[in-house]
Design a protein around this nucleic acid. Structure first.
Length: 511
RNA sequence: GAUCUCGUAGCUCAGUCGGUAGAGCACUUGACUUUUAAUCAAGGAGUCAUGGGUUCGAGUCCCAUCGAGAUCACCA
């Protein structure tokens, strides 16, 4: 244990010796918040020059002591509660009688440490320098801190000194991070506001919020490597879901007109600044609709989210150098048009050999197993994606890449699918759902052939899902949003770890 | 998975050519009854990520391991 930790344990013991409980059980009534007092405190100056304090004259607030300045027989402290910080003024003369005699010199001055949770009662006033403060008249320990917090200081111009910045420590000890870097709370508040806005919107559309299995016997609905686990009683392998799509569609079969789920997904793949092994998706499916309807809904929902997340209600969000306009309508571009626009290639006419030679010329990594559809996808990823800064619907994909998507109503070889790109990244994937059970079975069989050729991401056959389609699924539009990616966008963060309270980390060596 | 960079006091960081481990804040003691990055005086605090190697001598050079970040590959 460090010197400072030992001293804090000694302080704790001394408090108990004095009959002061550092971790009291009873509630502490809070009647005011720091930011309300600093924002709304009022006083008037009378003709004789004395001040008349007008409000907050009996307040009770609780929080952590974050700074302390002794000034002789008085002390100034900064109390931080969930709303912000306020200065406390404590005077020796106020703690002289009876039991309270040692309160100032011994307890507050010596045994109180930075980081301790305390409750104070007193009245608001303005100091000589004009800072709204609370003159403390009673003082109570609510929880003693046995470890010192990093001390982050700020000067009058807002320059920060000794910021707690090590990302490893910030992510491992988010409780410390958010205590000393409260500005990061804003990211999480916005994330929650975003989710709440989406949920409200979907509820208004009349969709039903549902829950579907996380432990699945077949990991369907997406192309990814799953986490595997084992159920002892059933003695069977189960997978943590990589997607919930096939379950939500079963519910459409069941007769719900629209369902949605905010769902944790798990993918056993690489980690980097845009991938965490568990992440959140919003998926929703609506009967009797198609992907054009879904584009309209997406535009409306994201505009509403932008306006909710922005304090000023704007539909624009600044991400790095770019200002992104979330008010629709968004540009709609077919995949072939996009590639023609950014590369000049007409992929519709080009054959596989031509695409191959283009990729080689442009140093796009390809391998022999890739068919025409996969080559198109590679070219798109390398040449087009990064240019799609403003929200853009990329529509009509080759059928081979979309085994759960309905064939295009008019264009052969394509499916009715769109992905939404914002700031050069995919944030949503949607389609007119394939509801023809015979076609769906053939698509699964194609996937099995791909798997046999060594494609690890090919989808498995799901007989129960096919059975549900054979009972009849209405025409349906469906979409999935990457909630973490959207959070990054709406909060201007470039790392997924900044929008997750507890991003996955390797184990610490010495706890 | 690959490459590069980083790991020194509670926090933020210096540490030269390999020669006894440094600063600011925090902490301790004292002074100061409206301070605010409070100030002033004095003091304490280190498994230099871990393990090996080279060397008379390693925070520093070499190797391995662990952890983190960045870039790339894959994926959402």
């Amino acid at each position: 244990m460090t010197e400072q930790e030992l001293l804090r344990r000694e302080s704790l013991a001394k408090l108990r010796e004095m009959g002061i409980e550092p971790y009291p059980a009873e509630l502490f009534e809070v009647t005011a918040f720091a930011s309300d007092i600093t924002a709304n405190y009022q006083e008037e100056v009378l003709e004789d020059g004395t001040k008349n304090r007008l409000n907050y004259q009996e307040v009770s607030l609780a929080g952590r002591i974050m700074a302390s300045r002794e000034a002789g027989k008085a002390m100034f402290m900064n109390l931080q509660d969930s709303s912000g910080r306020i200065q406390l003024y404590v005077r020796r003369d106020d703690f002289l009688e009876g039991d309270e005699a040692p309160m100032f010199d011994t307890v507050i001055k010596k045994l109180l440490d930075l980081g301790d949770y305390v409750g104070v009662k007193g009245y608001a006033f303005k100091t000589k320098t004009g800072e709204v403060s609370v003159h403390v008249q009673s003082f109570k320990f609510l929880a003693k801190a046995l470890r010192p917090l990093p001390v982050v200081k700020k000067d009058a111009e807002g320059h920060i000194f000794d910021a707690f910045t090590d990302p490893e420590q910030r992510y491992r000890m988010r409780y410390v991070d958010l205590t000393v870097n409260p500005q990061f709370k804003e990211i999480f508040l916005k994330r929650t506001k975003m989710i709440k806005t989406m949920r409200n919107y979907l509820d208004e559309l009349g969709l039903l919020e549902v829950e579907t299995p996380i432990l699945q016997p077949i990991h369907g609905g997406a192309a990814a490597r799953p986490f595997t686990t084992h159920h002892n009683t059933l003695d069977m392998t189960l997978y943590l879901r990589i997607a919930n799509e096939l379950y939500l569609k079963r519910l459409i079969v069941a007769g719900f007109d629209g369902v949605y789920e905010f769902a944790k997904m798990f993918r056993n793949e690489g980690m980097d600044r845009t991938h965490n092994p568990e992440f959140t998706a919003l998926e929703f499916y609506v009967a009797y609709k198609d992907y054009f309807w879904m584009m309209d809904v997406t535009e409306k929902m994201l505009e509403r989210v932008a306006r909710a997340v922005n304090a000023n209600g704007s539909s624009k969000v600044t991400v790095g150098e770019n200002q992104i306009e979330f008010a629709g309508p968004y540009r709609r571009l077919t995949m072939y048009e996009a590639i023609r626009e950014y590369t000049g290639i007409d992929v519709e006419k080009a054959d596989e050999a031509e695409l191959r030679s283009y990729c080689r010329k442009e140093h796009i990594e390809i391998d022999a197993s890739m068919g025409k559809a996969k080559l198109i996808d590679e070219i798109f990823g390398e040449k087009v994606e990064e240019h799609l800064i403003q929200p853009t619907f990329l529509i009509d994909y080759p059928v081979e890449m979309s085994p759960l998507t309905k064939k295009h109503r008019s264009a052969a070889g394509l499916v009715e699918r769109f992905e939404l790109f914002v700031n050069g990244k995919e944030v949503a994937n949607a389609y007119s759902e394939l509801n023809d059970p015979i076609d769906q079975r053939e698509r699964f069989e194609d996937q099995l052939r791909l798997a046999a050729r060594g494609d690890e991401e090919a989808m498995a056959m799901d007989e129960d899902f096919l059975r549900s389609l054979e009972y009849g699924m209405p025409p349906t539009a469906g979409i999935g949003f990457g909630i973490d990616r959207l959070s990054m966008l709406f909060t201007g963060q470039s790392s997924i770890q900044e929008v997750l309270f507890f991003p996955q980390m390797r184990p610490e060596v010495n706890g």
